[in-house]
Amino acid sequence: MKLRKVTAASAAVLALSLAATACGSDDKKDDSGSSGGSKKITIGIKFDQPGIGQKTPQGYTGFDVDVATYVAGKLGYSEDQIEWKESKSADRETMLKRGDVDFIAASYSITPEREQLVDFAGPYLLAHQDVLIRADDNSIKAPADLNSKKLCSVTGSTSAQNVKDKLAPKAQLQEYPTYSACLTGLQNAAIDALTTDDSILAGYAAQSQFKGKFKLAGLKMTNENYGIGVKKGSDLKDKINKALEEMVSDGSWQKVVDSNFGPANYKNEPAPKIGDIKS
């Protein structure tokens, strides 16, 4: 009888021990960020924009990549815990809604239409629509100077259409399939100017093969407030905003601006304040 009592007591202790171990195991899984896997964060970027977000044989480079890496670090993730996913412009809202990514940093301009679908942290960069011209061209100093010029952008670009419709209606718009094709045309004088966001233009002009060949006209034709997109209602928004503020205050923001855009003599705007959207 005594033996049975001891055995029952031991069984009870063992059961409690196993339960505690199981609870500890579950907590550990939660901390890891995945069921039994290593902790990771998935971030959407552009794969084809030099200076902004580009996939190379050596890895991922660009201003957005550097900003996203810094933010991820403040959220508790090291570089080897980041999974990068290509976020093409037309896919960004869908990727966030489906949960394909935790956040997106991909030259993602904050607009009222997009704010209906996703939330934005930032802005973290104020860019402007501008034109890239040959380094020896001094004929384009204002949007009106684009009249009768051969203007290039990628097929379907709203930037080129904006210049043609509103700012320089006599511009000769030529649509090429890629920015690289436009740059080739600009280099051999088949076109006079390439238009899109100045940050994107600076990224291309900063490539070593184009050093000293192009320059930004500095027209600042529109305001483009780059934000970090998150799923609607996500608590990541406030955490990312805090990280962005720290990035500016500790000098890291200016360092990545200089390293990614500096070779193109990009005259960047000061770091914008969180929530300050320039129309």
Rank of each mutant, 00 (worst) to 15 (best):
K2W: 10
K5P: 00
T7Q: 13
L18Q: 09
C23S: 14
K29L: 13
G33W: 10
S35M: 13
K39V: 03
K40S: 15
F47H: 10
F47D: 11
Q49M: 12
P50D: 02
G53H: 03
P57V: 01
F63I: 07
Y70Q: 03
V71I: 12
V71P: 02
G73T: 02
K74N: 07
L75G: 04
E79L: 04
D80R: 07
Q81N: 02
I82L: 08
E83Q: 11
E83C: 00
W84F: 08
W84A: 02
K85N: 01
E86T: 01
S87H: 01
D91P: 00
E93W: 02
T94S: 14
M95A: 11
L96N: 08
D102A: 13
F103I: 07
I104Y: 09
A106L: 06
S107P: 00
T111N: 06
E113S: 10
R114F: 03
L117R: 12
D119Q: 05
A121W: 05
L125G: 01
L125Q: 12
L126S: 05
H128K: 06
R134S: 14
L146W: 05
V154D: 08
V154R: 13
G156I: 08
S159Y: 12
S159N: 11
N162D: 12
L167H: 08
A168M: 06
Y176C: 12
Y176P: 00
T184P: 00
A190Y: 11
L201P: 07
A206M: 04
S208H: 02
F214W: 06
F214E: 04
T222K: 03
N223A: 13
N223W: 09
E224V: 13
Y226S: 09
Y226K: 09
I228W: 04
D235W: 04
K237D: 05
K239A: 11
K242Y: 06
K242W: 01
M247L: 08
V248M: 03
S252F: 14
F261R: 02
A264F: 02
A264G: 03
P270V: 09
I274V: 13
G275I: 09
G275P: 05
D276G: 00
D276M: 10
K278T: 07
